[in-house]
Every structure is written in C-alpha cells, then in structure tokens.
Design a protein around this nucleic acid. Structure first.
Length: 968
RNA sequence: GCUCGAGUGGUGGAAUUGGUAGACACGCCGGACUUAAAAUCCUGUGCUCUUUGGGGCGUGCGGGUUCAAGUCCCGCCUCGAGUACCA
C-alpha cells in the first residue's frame, strides 16, 4: 500500500475539523499551557513557504504539550485592519472589508492544508465590530485614567478630580503635560466645565495634543517613527515631512521604568530586550537651571555629566526652543531668524544625511553660571533636538565631542577641567579615568563622587536636582486612515467626549472615497452618516449636527497596534459580549507561555502590548503585568532568486536583440561573444553589443541544477523572445543564484500549495524544521525536500511490511537493539523540543527509522510510541498510522512515551583511550567503576601496555563516563 | 560611530557546552533493478600525499591557556541585524 499523503492529509484535516479535536476548554483540571503565534495580516498575495515557519514550530510545541497532558490553548486570528487593503480600495474602489474577507479565506485554506492544531472556534479579527468594540473599550479605560507616580500605577480619573477639589494640584505627583499651571481647590471648583476638561486632558493617559508628526503626503497619513525607514515610508517608499497636527497620544512614557524593569522577568531573546532597552533609552543625570542675565529667564537643561559643570563655556538651545525668540538680542535677530528658517526647511532626511556639518547661531544673550556666576553665551544649534530632554544643553566642550566640534567651529573657548589630559585634539569623555580640576568643590573627585557632590550643591542653591531621562516618547495614536478602528469619541465645544460603554461598538461608517477630503481631513471626513446623537445614542447623518444634542464624531482612526495589543487576552474568551474577557477565563489562562513571531516587532507591537498589559494590570483586569513569559523570534526564510544576464546586441541596420550569457561565461563575455559571432550569420560586419544587464527569472522556470527552461522563459517574458542563449558545453543554460528576501517582485516566491500537492504537508512541515535552527534566517531551496519526503515513505514502509506492502505490525517483543533505538529517540526528541531545537530532532527521526529498518523491527511496542513521537511534526501520517494500529481516538490525546534509562544502559560503556592526546583505541568498561578502578583496569589492559612500551605514564586523566587520557 | 549576533565540506547544517569535527540531509561519483525513464535500493564523498599499510593538514586570521580548543582568553578581519547628533 502506497503512502498516499494527499488522501491521508485531507482525511485527517476533515476529521479534526468535524470532531473539534483541538478545541480548548476554559474549564479543566489539567494544567494550562498557552502557545501563541503572532497573528497574520491577511495580504492579497497569500502565504509563501516562509510564512508558516513559526506556525509549524508553535504547532509542534502545542501538540507536544498536549501529549504531555496539558490543556493547551493554541488560537489563531487575523490582524485585519491595515494599509494595503485601504490602498487597494483607493485604487479599485472595492471596500476593504470585501478584499479582507477574501484574503482571509485564502489564508484559512492555506493554513488548514498544513494541518495546524489551531482552535478555530476562538478566531478573532481586529476589523470585526465584535472585536474592536473592546479595543474601543480599552481606549476609554485609558482615557479615564491618570498616572499617579506616588502609587506608581494608573488610577481612575475620578481620584484625581477628588484631589483637585480637595487640595488643588499643588501636591499631585503625576505623569502629565509640562505646561500645567498651579491652581487651588477653590480655583478648581470655580473653573468652567470646559476649562476643567482641558486641564484633565493634560493628565489623562491618552490625550489630545498638537504633536509634530511624520506626515506622508503621498499616503495622506501620519506615520510612526518605526514606520519610516531611511526617511521614507516603510510601505511604498514615499517621502515624509514634519507637520503639526492635533493627535491622540498614549502616555506610554509613564511606564518607561516599568517597561524596563519588566524585561528582567521575561524570557525573551537578548537582542530583542536590548533593542527595547535602547528604545526606552534611560539615562541618569541631573537637571540644571541657568538664568539669563537679562530678565532672568530660567533655562532648564538635562545633563548626564553634572560633574563637568565647571567646564561649561556656552549653552546650546534647539532652534525650536520657545525661549529663543524672547532672549535673542536685536543685533543677533537677523542671523538667528535666518538660521531657524534654514533648519525648518531641512527635512528630517537631510538632517540625517549630513550629521557632520556644524551649524548654529549666537543669540547675543548670556546666562549666569550657577556656581561661578560667570556669563555663559547662549547659542542655538540643530545638533540639539527639541524632542529630547528639555531641548537645551549646557555645553562642555572639553568633555563632549559634539560640544567640542561646535566650540572649535565657532571659536568658543574650551576650558580644561581634567587633570593631566590633553584636549588640544579632541574632547575627553572617559568617565572612569576622570579626575577633575579647576572646579572649586569638585576638585580631585572621581566621576561618581563628583556627580553626587554636584547634584548636592545644585539642590542646595535650588538650581537643579538629580533626574532620570528617557528617550521613549509618547506614542501617537491617531491615523488619517479609513481602514482602522474608529474612536468612540465625539466633540462638544472642541473637547473630546467618550461614548458610553453600553453603546459600543461605534462602527466604521461607509464612505464614497477612501482618500482624505479636499480640505485635508481624514477619509472619515467623507462619511455622510458620522455624527453622534446623544439623545437616541445613535450615529446619525452629519446634517443633523446642532451642537446641542448632536455632535461631530472623531475623524481619525486608531493605528495598527491598537488591535494587536490585547488580542492574546481576548482569545481566552473571544465571544464574550458582556466583558472583554471573563475574570474566570483570564484567571485560568493567566498569560502566554510561549509566543513565537518575528523580531521586526521589537519596538512596535511588542513594546505597546507590554504597555497595554501593564495598564490592564493596574486596572486589576489581568493577573500578570507581562503578557508573555517566553518569546522566540523565528528567523526569516529567504528566497533564492535567479538571474539571467544579457547583453543588448545589434547587427548593422537591423533590429536590436538580446544575447543571454551562461553563468559560467560571465567573466569572459567578450571571448564568448566573439566565439559565437564566428558561427553567426554572415552579415556580422558591423556587430555591436552593450554592457551586461541582468533580470530576475521566475524560480519555477529553474530546475534543481540551476538550469533554465528557455522555452518557458521566452513565453514568460515575450520581450526576450528573439534572444539568443549561449549555452554551456552540456547544452544547458545555467542562471546565477542569489539569496534575497522572498518577494513577489523578485520572482523567488515558492508557494506552499504546490509543495503540499507534490510532497504533502507533513514533508513540508518536517523540511521547514529541518532547514536549520528556528531563530536563524535561512535560504529556501525546494530541492532538499526529497530528504524529509523519503523519510516519511520509509516510516510508512516500516508499518507496511505485510503482503503487497499492506499494514502489518507484530505483537512480538522487540529486540534489545530496537528498544535501545526507541528510547534513544524518545530522549533526544524530548530534549530537542524542550530546547526548541526542532531541526536536530528531524535528524533523530531519520536515524531512528534507518536503524529500525536495519533491525527489521516491526514490533508494535516500538512502532506505537514512535508514531506519537513523530506526530507533533508530521501529524497526518501519525494520525493515519495510529488509526491503523487500532485506536479510535485521535493521536493528539495519546500520552508522550517516557524515556527509560535501562534501555540505553548496558553493562559496560566504551571509553576512548588516548595517548598523548591522540585517540588510539576504545575499551569497554563497567559503568559502575570508580575513577581509580577505571585507571587500574586501563593500566592492566594489554593495549595500554603496548602503547606505553614499558614507560611509566606521566599522568592519567579519567573523566568518568567520557574519556581516559594517558600522557606517556 | 555605538549595541548585539555570526563565520565549520560543493550546499543547508550537527557536535551531549572543553573530550574521536563534519551527525543528518541535499548535491555529486559509481553500482543494482529497468528496453528506457521515473521511483527505489546499495557503495563512496573535508582537503591532500601515498609504496593502499597508512601519513600530513584541516572549524575566518594571528597569538595564548590546557593532556585535550569549533567550543575558553587576548588582538585582528569579514558578514548580518538593530540604532543613530539622546546631551
């Protein structure tokens, strides 16, 4: 009987779906285990072989954990809001919901054919109203919260209001906007309602603010910093400019320290933790206040080197700093304004492109040094960023290279405050070797002590304090897009109002056009039915807006990360229409035990999700403040692109054609063409050819030996129909191969559908694991799949040893060798899965089956456990064999076999014996011998004596269980 | 520039964390079966010398520690990822 994988796979996929084999219950006596994949964005291109890598790994782990007796939650869903569907809608007018639904269908079919053990009854889609109802709900919770630094957590806004009406805001220790004026309780109570709302907005965890944003005119939207690559948009590569807009922001900066601390308790890859640490960018130092000589304007700066305060010879403000216009002297006004205008014109991209050019302008103003009382010149310069720290620095040219370069460029004095250090060429910034001089009370102190003392002295005179600064900025939460979650927000007198929880979801309205409006409003500005009636609590036509009972709704939508920041919790109770999830469900499932996904989300989704989780934790909604215990970044499977190289050629007065050059001949094109010309038509008198050009070839036109199907190529690229191919000696034409990202435009995409059809899903699953370590990126090469495919055929034959290869296993006791083979395999596979080394366990299976074949082992006692071992990797064939072994329930319910040492251990073990470090022979010795007994036995051995040739051994090294080494 | 990570046959990659480097697979060479192809099976396959017994060299390069180094230490080189005037 043949291994008919197509039939077997279809049969069991249907069985699993019909029987809901992988449905997880929220009620179980078993221990829980939550295995999660990053849910996909359903793009129109469907899956290629690179996509399922992480899903296969997580599926193996989920199936393994089921065999180990856990109640496993292994859900899947779709991150179905996003830009591509919207772009497509703009081009074709098709509603994104329609294309998204079609794409999801394709995804589902492709995922199903790989035999994943997802619990599809828990599927979520971020774009479905039942789901985004809860995204809106969480947004409202965040809006109704403020961050109390005293309790170090988010609290209800009501507690803040209570404090205001009792004591005003003098003693509030909150994370909030920095432009807040003090008020008393009496003043608070006297404020108008709008004024109160305005103030509260400065404290809320999500707030409206005029933010300088990255505006992409081509896409008509705002992009996050991580959506911009090299100054252009990640999608589409359009230019990006700075623009001020009123945007919703999330006060993620309130959580900076907790996000940093949390990294210590989660088992995530170090590089990912490093990049989050970098992103948060904590730096310790001090804030120092300088006062201008004229008018005593305070200028606050942040420095990590308060110990170098006596080295200050000037100050630099960002050109955008609000004080610049107030302090600039009339003499310098023209120069300063010209400089500000020049920097404003420079795009972010230009600034990045040339970091070497030093530019700036002197304001004419001076500040007073807090200790020496000397005047310090105030400059502006674009190397100081408005968005970091206070947008102003105290410049210490002897201790900071940028200050040094600036000082040199503008001939500003560079006083030296470091003992025995030459600063004539560059600044000295080695903290550990610092000994300070010319610095009054800091003289002679090493770095750490000097910092402490400087802060102490600053505090004493009230002009500074120790401070920790973070690079992490609040996250902009508004997008000028259609295909995203609408905000549950309407505006009364310009102040945002939340729609009550019971009226959620606020559903996305229909629009005629998906582009921004002519007045530059977001696409929702095109909606005709987009106003909130507070009486009927319904969305009504815009014409009904009267600003007394019917108000305009928010036109922005939420960013992509809104829906992905909580989906892992929603899976626990996805159909709950009363709550985001029940407390019972969250208390059972707690958190994700294993999360597998790409590292590209390090500073996006994975940081935002940790922030939302911490917020939810503060609100008492979730029991854990980190959502995923362990995370693995699967590597990318890259494509192997193929190229054909051509020269354009022409005979006199004739039409141009192409000559394709074989891979081998690329280094001596001239010689090859000359040779070809000799055989060419006679009219080759005036023959000319140009430089080499190369073009991608669809990899499906290339065979395993890199040979091109020339006829197929000509059909595929009719523009090359008249080309001449200079073939290799063997009458074949070989292409050049190169590893690139797998992408449609590079024609190197390999589709899992065709692989499944030809070799089966089990072969594909095994092969993807076999390719290499999970976390490493590796090139795809379809040719190698025959290896895992023939393994499955061998496995099949092991169970089909009857007449005409019919199913047959024996009930007899297996040989000792076979027991050994089985238990060796159990041990290795168990270790491999626990360490996520799925690649080596595939090898182990191959060795196992090869050995069993050699041993002619057909015993049920060995084959049955083997089927269970293989089943996480190749579930379809395992299920079929399991069924043939007479089981009526799915193999998924079987218990993982236990490894027993006694099958491996024999009475003796082979010890390699070496002389002078060179291995010479091995000796079987009893396992329970002591180190001394081994030594004695080795010395008594005939071969040892031969090797020693009568000499006394200098040294005998015995590592029990491993090796005996004799130095003669 | 800074921060991580990685360099092993023709290729993907193993190596129990200091103990016979190259498991397993692809590819290739040769063979069996076949009219033939496909499929399947068997043998060989790091480089090199060889008197066919075996010898020498081999994990990016140069040193070091050790009886023993792909693995540990020091100094380089190359590639990949992230980040970028962060005071």
């Amino acid at each position: 009987m043949q291994y008919n994988f197509n039939e077997i796979e279809a049969k069991w996929q249907k069985y699993w779906a019909d029987n809901q084999t992988f449905k997880a219950e929220n009620d179980s006596d078993k221990e829980k285990f939550y295995v999660l994949d990053m849910f996909p964005y359903p793009s129109g291109a469907g899956l290629h072989v690179g996509h399922p890598l992480g899903y296969i790994a997580s599926d193996i782990y989920a199936r393994y954990k089921r065999h180990k007796g856990f109640n496993v939650l292994h859900p899947q869903g779709y991150d179905s809001f996003g830009l591509p569907a919207e772009q497509y809608a703009i081009q074709t007018g098709q509603h994104p919901a329609v294309t998204t639904a079609a794409n999801i269908k394709t995804y589902r079919r492709q995922l199903d054919q790989l035999g994943f053990s997802f619990d599809w009854s828990r599927e979520v889609r971020t774009s479905s109203p039942e789901y985004y109802k809860w995204t809106q709900w969480v947004f409202i919770q965040i809006f109704n919260s403020w961050y109390n630094k005293d309790s170090d957590k988010a609290e209800e806004i009501e507690t803040l209001i209570a404090k205001f009406s009792k004591d005003g805001n003098a003693n509030i220790n909150a994370v909030c906007d920095d432009d807040i004026e003090d008020f008393t309780a009496d003043e608070w109570r006297a404020f108008t309602d709008v004024k109160k709302q305005e103030i509260l907005l400065k404290y809320r965890l999500t707030y409206l603010a005029d933010t300088e944003v990255n505006w992409c005119p081509a896409l008509g939207t705002v992009l996050a910093n991580d959506e911009i690559v090299n100054g252009v948009s990640e999608r589409g590569g359009h230019p990006v400019v700075r623009k001020k807009m009123t945007q919703w922001s999330m006060r993620i900066s309130a959580y900076a320290q907790r996000l940093l601390d949390g990294l210590a308790k989660i088992d995530w890859p170090q590089p990912l933790k490093d990049s989050q640490t970098n992103w948060i960018g904590r730096s310790e130092g001090a804030s120092v206040t300088f006062f201008t000589v004229e008018n005593s304007f305070p200028i606050e700066v942040f420095t990590t080197r308060p110990d170098t305060i006596f080295g200050v010879s000037f100050m630099t403000l960002a050109p955008e700093h609000e004080l610049v216009s107030k302090i600039t002297t009339s003499d310098q006004k023209a120069e300063v304004e010209a400089y500000i205008e020049a920097t404003a014109k420079r795009s972010e991209r230009d600034r990045m492109a040339d970091v070497k050019t030093i530019s700036g302008a002197f304001t004419g103003a001076y500040a007073e040094h807090p200790f020496t009382k000397e005047p310090v010149a105030i400059w502006i310069g674009d190397y100081v960023l408005a968005g970091y720290g206070t947008g102003a620095v105290m410049s210490v040219p002897c201790g900071d290279q940028r200050d040094y370069d600036f000082a040199k460029h503008f001939n500003i004095p560079i006083p030296n405050i470091f003992e025995g250090v030459d600063i004539s060429e560059e600044a000295f910034s080695d903290k550990d070797k610092t000994v300070i001089t010319n610095s009054d009370f800091l003289n002679g102190l090493p770095y750490k002590k000097a910092v402490k003392r400087a802060i102490f002295e600053l505090e004493k005179i009230g002009q500074g304090a120790g401070k920790i600064n973070y690079r992490l900025r609040d996250a902009v939460f508004s997008r000028q897009r259609y295909w995203g979650e609408p905000f549950p927000v309407y505006y009364v007198d310009g102040m945002p109002q939340m729609i009550a929880n019971e009226h959620l979801p606020v559903e996305l309205p229909e629009v005629e056009k998906y582009l921004p409006t002519e007045t530059g409003e977001p696409p929702l500005g095109n909606a005709e039915v987009w106003a909130w009636d507070t009486v009927t609590t319904k969305v009504v036509n815009n014409s009904e807006i009267n600003n007394t009972t019917v108000f305009p709704l928010e036109l922005n939508t939420m960013p992509g990360w809104a829906g992905s920041s909580q989906y892992f919790n929603r899976y626990m109770d996805p159909h709950n229409s009363e709550e985001i999830f029940s407390q019972k469900a969250i208390n059972y499932w707690q958190d994700v035990d294993l999360y597998i996904g790409g590292s590209e989300h390090a500073t996006g989704h994975l940081l935002y999700s940790r922030f939302w989780q911490k917020f939810m934790f503060d609100k008492g909604l979730v029991p854990k403040d980190e959502f995923a215990k362990k995370l693995i970044n699967q590597g990318m499977i890259t494509g192997t692109s193929a190229f054909v190289h051509f020269v354009t050629a022409k005979f006199e007065n004739e039409k141009q054609f192409f000559i394709a050059i074989n891979k081998k001949d690329l280094n001596n094109v001239d010689a090859v063409i000359k040779k070809w010309r000799n055989t060419a038509p006679v009219n080759s008198k005036a023959f000319k050819y140009g430089a080499l050009i190369s073009t991608h070839v669809d990899v499906s036109l290339i065979n395993a030996s890199d040979e091109l199907d020339i006829e197929g190529f000509k059909k595929w690229r009719p523009d090359f129909e008249d080309s001449i191919f200079i073939k290799d000696d063997g009458e074949v034409f070989k292409v050049v191969r190169e590893v690139e990202k797998m992408s449609k435009s590079k024609y190197n995409v390999v589709n899992p559908d065709s692989i499944c059809e030809e070799y089966g899903a089990d072969s594909l699953r095994l092969y993807e694991m076999f390719l290499g370590p999970l976390e490493q990126s590796k090139p795809w090469n379809t040719a190698g799949i025959t290896g895992t495919h023939s393994f499955l055929k061998k496995l099949w034959r092991q169970f089909h040893t009857g007449e005409n290869a019919s199913f047959m296993v024996s009930e007899e006791e297996p040989s000792k060798e076979s027991w050994k083979t089985l238990h060796k395999t159990i041990k290795k596979v168990e270790e491999d899965i626990d360490n996520f080394s799925f690649n080596t366990s595939v090898s182990t299976f191959m060795i196992c089956v090869n050995e069993l074949t050699a041993q002619k082992c057909v015993s049920r006692k060995v084959l049955e456990p083997l089927a269970i071992l293989v089943s996480p990797y190749a579930p379809h064939i395992a299920e079929e064999l399991w069924n043939k072994l007479g089981h009526t329930r799915s193999i998924a319910t079987a218990t993982f076999p236990t490894f027993e040492e006694r099958y491996l251990v024999e009475s003796s073990k082979e010890y390699p014996i070496s002389f002078n470090g060179k291995m010479k022979f091995t000796l079987a010795l009893s396992l329970d011998l002591s180190k001394e007994e081994i030594e004695t036995a080795v010395m008594a051995n005939e071969k040892t004596q031969q090797q020693l040739q009568g000499r006394e051994p200098k040294k005998i090294i015995v590592v029990p269980g491993k090796i005996v080494n004799i130095v003669g």
